[in-house]
Amino acid sequence: MNRTLSHSSFISSFGGNVMNMLSPQVGENILEIGSGNGYMANQLSSLGVNITGIDSSENMIEQSQHHYPHVHFMRVNALDLDYEDQFDAVFSQNTLHLIHPPTVVIKNIYRALRLQGRFVTEFNGQNHLYPVFNEVLRQLVVFNIISSNFSIPFYFPSIGEYTSLLEQHGFDVQSAIHFIQPLVLQHEDGLRNWLDTHASSLFNNITPETKQIIFNRVEDKLQKTFFKQDEWCLPAAYIRVQAVKTI
């Protein structure tokens, strides 16, 4: 196999700048946090990386083990990592906004890395889907489901906040950016389907009827601005960070 061509093809077709930042090398030991269905871990494995994929979802681990039995997957929450000086790199994409407190995750990642090991991550940051979450919370207050000082159960930090946490825990931050990228959801029911799947924790302990009323109201409020040509186009915010364990 032509390793150089395979590496270039993977970088250009999946992950782009994130993979350029990670720059996986043959023989490296890399940990992926939030391995999901295992696709990324399998691609890294095909490049000659010794990859370990972890995920807190039993269903995701079962799927990834079924599809990629040659890759090492484990059901582990990033809050419970107990590796020490084991990995050349730790990688995570679209996961860390779901895990808090972030300080515990950062400490665990730092401990898992070898000296000069790198941490590369991309996840949702400050103001992620702000119009959507703002309207959902407003409706939940209207229905007396939450109080007005309630905050969403996700971690959407600013660049300054997150890089400061990394530096406080021994990392040397090499690069960090915050950017907006459209989240496109097909068809009129795309937004409510997304909320029902990715923000389901906001709707615990309410009746299906009330939930549908809230979905209707959110759609009515946002449709004029964000729904055009049979798709929702919403402002998704991301932070992308590369840091190195130098001490």
Rank of each mutant, 00 (worst) to 15 (best):
N50G: 06
F154K: 07
F156T: 09
F215R: 07
F227I: 05
G117E: 06
N50H: 10
I11G: 00
L195V: 06
N205H: 13
S57E: 07
N124M: 15
V104N: 10
E84K: 09
G117R: 05
L31F: 06
N193I: 01
D55I: 09
T246Q: 06
F14E: 01
S56F: 14
R217D: 11
G16L: 03
I61N: 05
Q229N: 15
Y83A: 10
Q242T: 12
I54Q: 03
N144Q: 15
L166A: 11
I11N: 01
W232I: 05
G15P: 11
M19H: 02
G160W: 06
S6E: 13
F203P: 12
F143T: 11
Y162T: 00
G15Q: 09
V218Q: 04
L202F: 11
S35G: 06
H7G: 00
L5P: 03
I33V: 15
L115T: 14
N124A: 14
N205R: 08
K224L: 03
S57Y: 05
S35Y: 02
Y110E: 07
V49I: 10
F91M: 00
R111H: 10
I214T: 07
F143G: 00
H169W: 08
E219P: 01
F179M: 02
E188T: 08
G36E: 06
L5M: 09
D85H: 12
I159A: 06
M60Q: 14
E84Y: 05
I146W: 02
H128T: 12
N108M: 07
H198Y: 15
F150A: 09
I214G: 07
F91Y: 13
L191T: 05
I51K: 02
Q93T: 11
F87I: 00
T95Q: 06
V141K: 13
F227W: 12
D172N: 15
Q86E: 13
Q139G: 01
H169G: 03
I99V: 15
L222F: 05
F226T: 03
V241N: 04
I239K: 04
I214K: 05
I206W: 08
P131F: 05
I109M: 05
Y238R: 14
V90P: 00
T210C: 09
R138Q: 11
S151C: 07
Q223D: 05
N42M: 04
Y68P: 08
N193T: 07
I159N: 08
A243K: 08
E231S: 12
K211M: 15
